[in-house]
Structures are given as structure tokens and as C-alpha cells.
């Protein structure tokens, strides 16, 4: 109800400021054209972040001092520096090192905007997710580990078959939140020229001096995207609760 009111107020305001809806509609397809790239970058980013996070989390829980130290450094350094600095570092900083690399490897240092973006987002979110994964793994009771070990399972088997499947239930909701946050943070890549949603919106806005219109369009598209993913995330969470919710109580208490 309140939302409806907000929309009416906004519509009135837009009309008062002579909002150019025709212009917005005209450029909508162009701005929408950035959506696939935004989604692609976010999906690849999270696909990179998850294994990094798993390694980071296992490192934080490891008794091996090297593994523990490495993961500690990763999590601390990445969480302690701004994402935009990390993006610039990979896109603009790394190429500077290419001159020291042997010829065939130089290409590894000079990356396109999309590759840089996926790397930066993946590495950045991996560090945040590592803490989420660690907490999820620790939420699985020690009795579970003991039961698995008493049955003769190795540590790796225990982790893979018993601990992680249970941790996933705890990990999925915040990971979904991180993915949604990543969709929004992918807009930062527009600054280095990735042709995603925000880049396209701001380009047209500046070109025609109608920034407000294009930014409103971009904001609405981001909002719709994140709402869609929130919806699917909710459904996934309900499916994962299988085995944890009594659908009907056999004992009546």
C-alpha cells in the first residue's frame, strides 16, 4: 500500500519535472542490451567466488600453518581494500607487470574488461563468502563429524559427504544475498569501460544530457533483476529445508 503511494508521488514528481518518457522508451532497448553482460559477469563472478571461498574457509579451519596463513591473508587483504581499487589493479595495474614476464605469458597480465571484471568480483566476493562458508561449516555439530569418523570415513569424505551438504543449507541464503550484491557491484565495471547495464545508461545519459532519465531506467532494471533473483533464492531455501522441517508431526507435540 505504502509502495503504491510512493509510486504515485514519484509519478507526479516526474511529470512535474517534465520527465522525457519517450526518450526513456527510445533508449530502453539499448540499455537493456547491457543486461546479458551484467548477468554473465555476475554469474561467472560468483562461480569463481564460490571455490575461492571454499578454499578460504577450509584454510581458516585448517591446522596446516601455511594454508591457514595464506587464507587469512587473502581474506584480510581483500576485505580490507576497496573493490574499485582491486578492479583498477587488475585492469590497469597488472599490464604494467607484463613487460617483466616472458613473451608467451604476457597475455596473462593484459586482460580485457570483462575478464578483469569477473576476476575482481570473484576474488573480492570470494573473501567475503569465505567467512560465510567458514561459519556454515562450523555450524555443523561436532557429533556429525564423530559419527562419520566412527564409521571409518576419511576427513575428506566426512567433509564432502556429511559436513558440506549440511553447511550448504546455512550457506545458501547469505550466498544468494552476496550474488545479488554482486549484480549491483558489477556496475563498478562500467567505470573501466565494460559495456554492461550501467555503462550503457550513463553513456546515453551524458550524450544527451538526460542522465536522470537513463539512470532511472538503469535503477529500475537493476531492481527488477535483483527482485527476480531474490524470488528464486527464496524458493531454493525452501527446497533445502527438506529433512529439517516436519511437514506433519507424527507424535502430535
Amino acid at each position: 500500500m505504502v509502495w503504491v503511494l510512493i509510486f504515485i508521488v514519484l509519478a507526479v514528481l516526474f511529470a512535474a519535472f517534465r520527465f522525457d518518457t519517450a526518450f526513456m522508451l527510445e533508449w530502453l532497448p539499448f540499455i537493456l542490451g547491457g543486461v546479458p553482460l551484467t548477468i554473465l559477469i555476475s554469474v561467472l563472478g560468483i562461480l569463481l567466488a564460490v571455490p575461492l571461498a571454499l578454499l578460504g574457509a577450509l584454510g581458516r579451519l585448517s591446522k596446516n600453518p601455511v594454508f591457514y596463513g595464506l587464507s587469512g591473508f587473502y581474506v584480510s587483504f581483500i576485505r580490507g581494500t576497496p573493490l574499485i581499487v582491486q578492479i583498477f589493479f587488475i585492469y590497469l595495474g597488472l599490464p604494467q607487470l607484463a613487460q617483466y614476464a616472458p613473451g608467451p605469458l604476457q597475455g596473462l597480465f593484459i586482460l580485457g574488461t570483462v575478464t578483469s571484471g569477473v576476476l575482481a568480483l570473484g576474488i573480492n566476493y570470494g573473501a567475503y563468502l569465505a567467512e560465510i562458508f567458514r561459519a556454515g561449516i562450523q555450524s555443523v555439530g561436532h557429533g556429525q563429524v564423530e559419527a562419520a569418523q566412527a564409521l571409518g570415513m576419511t576427513r575428506a569424505q566426512t567433509m564432502r559427504r556429511i559436513v558440506l551438504p549440511q553447511a550448504v543449507r546455512v550457506i545458501i541464503p547469505p550466498t544468494g544475498n552476496e550474488f545479488i550484491a554482486m549484480i549491483k557491484d558489477s556496475a563498478l565495471l562500467g567505470i573501466v569501460g565494460t559495456q554492461e547495464l550501467f555503462y550503457r545508461a550513463s553513456k546515453i545519459g551524458r550524450q544527451y544530457f538526460q542522465n536522470l532519465e537513463t539512470l532511472v531506467v538503469a535503477a529500475i532494471i537493476y531492481w527488477i533483476l535483483t527482485s527476480i533473483f531474490s524470488y528464486f533464492q527464496g524458493r531454493l531455501e525452501r527446497r533445502l529445508s527438506k529433512g529439517y522441517v516436519r511437514e506433519e508431526d507424527p507424535h502430535g507435540h
Binding site: Q144, A147, A148, A150, G152, M153, Q157, I162, Q166, G243
Partner: peptide, 26 residues
Amino acid sequence: GMVFQEFNLFPHLSVIENVVEAPTTV
């Protein structure tokens, strides 16, 4: 084989899956 005070069944697995987990994995 060990039986614990707190049972420690695997909550993410059904009864039959709890029982076959170790023979198949180990």
C-alpha cells in the same frame, strides 16, 4: 561400530541413506 548418546544421525539423509552412506563411501 559406535552408537552415541545423541544418536548423531545425518539429518540431511533419509533413514536408508544414513544406513548405506558408509558402506558405499568407505
